[in-house]
Design a protein around this nucleic acid. Sequence first.
DNA 1: ATGGCTTCCATCGGAAGA
Length: 260
Amino acid sequence: MRIATFNINGIKARIDALAEWLADARPDVVLLQELKSVDDGVPRGSLEDLGYNVETHGQKGFNGVAILSRFPLEDISRGLPGDPDDEQARWIEATVTGPKAAIRVCGLYLPNGNPAPGPKFDYKLGWMERLRKRAEALLEKEEIVVIAGDFNVIPEPRDAARPDAWVKDALFLPETRAAWRRIVNLGYHDAIREVTQDDGVYSFWDYQAGAWQKNDGIRIDHLLLSPQAADRLVSAGIDKDVRGREKPSDHVPVWIELDA
DNA sequence: ATGGCTTCCATCGGAAGA
């Protein structure tokens, strides 16, 4: 079972690029972020024609997440628990029944948090604490759980080409990285770090200032695995070449292969 | 860099992103 996360930066603007990658990479499950569309604006037909079930949690103009799956999706839940006043569409989860096992997949678009300090940074840290609580509850069931998406967190200096440029940024501030570690240290595994300790492994390159051409990237799109998921990890990778294609997102797909 | 792109929404500029 191949599961990928991809921040597509606008599903209407990206549908051709997304369809091309799907036909190429043929993932079984895809967690999408930044639809920038209401549910009715998502070009479901194009995705269903490629063999995917489509579950969305959209929002007008920005945010928005979705799950695509070649296998049935059940028990779909939209919105991160813990704050009934949070209107932002940043969380969706569902159970995928694979050929060998059921997997709980959670797709997230974690708040950017800039400028920091300020209300947007406070919202980010509050959201991360709610994520920690949900991640903890998911572990208690001792199931195969994958929490994946655009975390907007650079975990360590080796996850940025120029770490010094990010020291005052909400993606890399000590409070952000501490909140990330509180989640991982519950017992999750950062899938990419299960397969490589290299630096220079990135998932985002800014559109500005020739960041892609200079490989001035950061690693902020992650898949966290419960112990039961990590036991079944076969491989993991980043489809970096997608960033060099026509009309690309500023993020690229990150994926895992599970024996499930 | 008070933003060098890119998207969306709504008009012909502004918000948001990271």
